[in-house]
Design a binder for these strands. Structure first.
Lengths: 237, 237
DNA sequence: ACCTGAACACCGTTCAAGT
DNA sequence: ACCTGAACACCGTTCAAGT
């Protein structure tokens, strides 16, 4: 976002893990996940590649630390007193962050149970609890919400290095001709039928619709607590 | 599954794309995503690495073709006359395939809108239609189901090459001490509270619970078709 | 046309050598 | 202790040369 590629000369202050992660995020925001290499990062910080290993163990922790920092930002900005509104605010906040920073989406789905995912899980777990979902179902409920977010995240990590057939939700699929033909030469009957929606739809709106579907499902879960103690107050905290 | 590393000598028949993909799947099943390199694949087929490029454009299409083949298997084996049962059968079928072949999970979340995902999307879209979800909501409904599957897929791709903090759903998190401490030193109140469930829970069962939550939400969607034509028969196909 | 395999342009990571 | 930067062990991909 800010200035990148500037000042590749000076190196007065000592290296810090925080400083390295900040620089990494700058590179990620500016050039995407593919732009982050230890050589580029070292050049950006005017140091040698090996120096970085004194502060971060490897590229994995660098990326998961960056993702965790981004998630902390999102969670700090989102929330509401009403549990359902809070769930909407948090999940949409993550969605917006992922569209603004595709590297975040890639990283969230790349490493299971990394800090950023745990942070999100914990927050949604608290919201789900406040929503009145009974204890035994809270874990499943939070899971469903996290999976929805991660599923969407996985659709936004393009750019990277693999399938050249990818390239953008609308563009590739909507272009009518070849992409709607299966590898075996068959067709996709459902996708062909709703093709116009594929072209016209708004990803963010569709994401929100998915959250509403889950919230509706959770509402039924809340009411139908067949096994439960009748009101369950007193577990404190 | 079968024999790997055998017969690295003979090469009588000509190379085929299908044969290359089959060999790739064998390597993936046997050694995981990290084991598939063009050098290993060439050795397995007793040919040179460059020869492979006469049949597959790059590693991306190799992986997405392999994933598509695996998805075709799953979809052929799954299904039911009852729409809801079919959705359960298809999604659980994909879940089982992902746990059996972690490389499939990695690949599904690595490339957006690849053939394997389109196949799944199309199938779930048809099921959702048969379930009675009204036309304008069918796309959102199928999306929600696909995202749930992909979200789970993203939690299974460990093994690979990044965060060494990962390592297994139960093991890492459940070990009580450090993993439940946030990067900023704080704690995860929700996760700490349900820690025992984290240890005890069954991933497959939790996946099914998520599908049930979504199915419940879809049920409400089906009833509340406020905009709709009253019965909507006749769109044929 | 298909195949070969050395070569190219990268990676992440290590490590002797400096300060 | 921290930093340097060349070197190592890989990658995916290309391409002259063979058949």
């Amino acid at each position: 976002m800010t200035d990148v590629g500037q000042r590749p000369q000076r190196r007065s202050d000592a290296l810090t893990k925080a400083g390295i992660v900040d620089a990494a995020i700058e590179i990620l925001d500016d050039g995407g996940a593919g732009a982050l290499t230890f050589r580029a990062l070292a050049a950006h910080l005017a140091t040698g590649a090996g120096a970085l290993y004194h502060h971060v163990a490897n590229k994995g922790v660098l990326l998961s630390t960056a993702a965790s920092a981004a998630m902390t930002e999102v969670l700090a900005a989102a929330g509401s007193a009403d549990p359902a509104a809070s769930i909407r605010s948090v999940t949409v906040g993550v969605f917006d962050a992922i569209t603004a920073r595709p590297w975040l989406g890639s990283q969230l789905v790349a490493a299971p149970w990394q800090p950023a995912v745990l942070q999100l899980f914990d927050r949604l777990g608290s919201d789900v609890t406040a929503l009145g979902v009974p204890e035994p179902a809270q874990f499943d409920a939070a899971s469903a919400l996290v999976h929805h977010v991660l599923g969407v995240a996985s659709q936004y990590d393009a750019g990277q290095g693999l399938d050249p057939a990818g390239g953008g939700r609308s563009g590739v699929i909507a272009s009518s001709a070849s992409p709607l033909v299966r590898p075996d030469g068959g067709r996709y009957p459902f996708l062909v039928r709703i093709e116009q929606q594929l072209v016209d739809h708004d990803d963010r709106q569709q994401f929100e619709a998915g959250i509403e579907i889950i919230l509706t499902g959770l509402g039924a879960l809340r009411r139908g607590a067949a096994t439960g103690e009748d009101t369950d107050r007193g577990t404190g905290s």
